[in-house]
Amino acid sequence: MAMDLRKIKKLIELVQESDIAELAITEGEESIRITRYSPMPATISTQPSISAAPISPQAKMTNQYNVSSSVVSQVSSPPNTEGFVQVSPMVGTFYAAIEPDDVPLVKVGQRVSQGEVICIIEAMRMMNPIQAERDGVIRAIWAKDGDEIVFDQPLFSLI
Rank of each mutant, 00 (worst) to 15 (best):
Ile20Ala: 08
Ile32Lys: 03
Met126Cys: 10
Glu116His: 04
Met90Trp: 07
Arg125Phe: 06
Ser56Ala: 10
Val106Ile: 14
Glu133Leu: 14
Ser68Arg: 10
Gln16His: 04
Val103Phe: 03
Gly109His: 06
Val91Cys: 04
Val108Pro: 04
Ile118Asp: 04
Gly136Thr: 10
Gln114Lys: 15
Ala2Val: 08
Leu155Arg: 13
Gln86Ile: 00
Pro48Met: 08
Val91Gly: 04
Lys60Gly: 03
Val67Ile: 15
Pro39Lys: 10
Val108Cys: 01
Leu5Asn: 00
Ile50Ser: 13
Leu14Thr: 00
Pro100Met: 02
Ala2Cys: 01
Phe94Ile: 01
Thr93Gln: 08
Met40Leu: 02
Phe94Asp: 07
Thr35Lys: 13
Asp4Ile: 00
Arg33His: 08
Thr35Arg: 13
Lys7Pro: 00
Tyr37Glu: 14
Val117Thr: 15
Ser113Asp: 01
Ala96Met: 02
Gln58Trp: 07
Gln16Asp: 06
Met90Gly: 01
Ser56Phe: 14
Asn66Phe: 03
Met90Leu: 15
Pro48Ser: 05
Tyr95Ala: 05
Ala132Arg: 09
Arg139Ala: 14
Gly115Ser: 06
Met126Thr: 15
Leu105Met: 08
Val85Lys: 11
Ser49Met: 01
Ile141Val: 15
Glu29Trp: 01
Leu5Val: 08
Leu23Glu: 01
Ile149Trp: 09
Ile118Thr: 06
Leu5His: 04
Val112Ser: 02
Phe84Arg: 01
Tyr95Asp: 07
Val150Tyr: 12
Ser45Pro: 01
Val117Trp: 01
Thr46Met: 11
Gly92Trp: 07
Ile8Gln: 00
Glu116Ala: 07
Leu23Phe: 09
